[in-house]
């Protein structure tokens, strides 16, 4: 573990902010347990992915500047999402070309110290286990950006392995997308629904009673489909379980 308490800025992400505040509080709890001093900068909104992936580089760049200015002063920026984390750590530098070396440098500096939550806990803070209990059989979905852009695969499984009462089941085709894809899910709903139906089938086949993942987009998508099919699977962000905060909110898509 690091000797001093690093100053960590939490980038909440717009979906956690709007849809699932408990994930934000769970992230704070986990980061503090790992020895971080956590702050939540007031001036944050969205990492800019909707614009970036719609081809609107200008807006993406404007939003990136906001984020860079706000988060650069901290030791680390931590994001409870592989996709928003990847946006900052892998895509921001490419938004600024040689005509803007100042921001390019700043973007690179921020990219180098931005991490997805779970991998930050294990890889940077050296967290080995969590103090949590969850009585259930859990399937974990690897979100695509986390898996392929950030190489997050074993980290959540390792921490989940330390949760008392929890049994982990693996999905078949665990590297296959759930069909969310940001605006894709509403631009091409037929294909998206087909993909998430396949995923829901795989989830049900594991026999798990709970589905976890590290990205709200995928979670809303999979929860929505499982609900529509009437499948009795509880869906949650992995941080809620790791932080032992499942009492704080009903599963995603369930009434309180």
């Amino acid at each position: 573990m690091l000797q001093t308490r690093p100053r960590v800025a939490l980038f909440v992400t717009c979906l956690v902010d709007l849809y699932r505040p408990t994930v934000g509080f769970a992230a704070i709890k986990l980061l503090e347990a790992a020895g971080c001093q956590v702050e939540v900068p007031e001036a944050q909104t969205c990492c800019g992915q909707p614009a970036y992936n719609s081809g609107d580089r200008t807006t993406a760049r404007d939003l990136a500047r906001n984020v860079i200015d706000t988060f650069l002063p901290y030791d680390y920026t931590v994001v409870p999402s592989g996709s928003c984390g990847g946006q900052i750590s892998h895509h921001y530098p490419g938004l600024f070309d040689d005509s803007d070396p100042h921001y390019r440098g700043r973007a690179e500096a921020l990219a180098a110290k931005t991490h997805e939550l779970v991998s930050f806990l294990t890889d940077v803070m050296g967290m080995q286990e969590v103090a949590a209990r969850y009585d259930g059989v859990v399937a974990y979905h690897d979100s695509c950006s986390g898996l392929r852009e950030l190489g997050i695969r074993e980290q959540p499984r390792k921490l989940l392995g330390s949760v008392q009462g929890l049994t982990l089941k693996e999905l078949v085709d665990r590297d296959v997308c759930c069909g969310f894809g940001g605006t894709f899910c509403v631009k091409y709903p037929d294909i998206s629904v087909r993909m998430v139906s396949d995923k829901a089938k795989d989830v049900v086949e594991t026999g798990a009673d709970t589905l976890l993942a590290g990205d709200m987009g995928c979670l809303l998508n999979m929860a929505g489909r499982l609900k529509r099919e009437g499948a009795p699977v509880k869906v949650r962000h992995v941080a809620e379980v790791l932080a032992d905060m499942t009492q704080d909110a009903a599963p995603i898509g369930e009434p309180k």
């Binding site: 909440v12 956690v16 902010d17 709007l18 849809y19 699932r20 505040p21 408990t22 994930v23 934000g24 509080f25 939540v40 007031e42 899910c185 509403v186 631009k187 709903p189 037929d190 998206s192 629904v193 998430v196 139906s197 809303l220 998508n221 929860a223 929505g224 489909r225 609900k227 529509r228 909110a249 009903a250 995603i252 898509g253 309180k256």
Partner: peptide, 18 residues
């Protein structure tokens, strides 16, 4: 586009995180 093939989970009650 969303609700044709899946439910849309409602936001967690209690307001935004911020």
């Amino acid at each position: 586009g969303w609700t044709r093939g899946r439910d849309l989970p409602a936001p967690e009650p209690g307001g935004t995180f911020m």
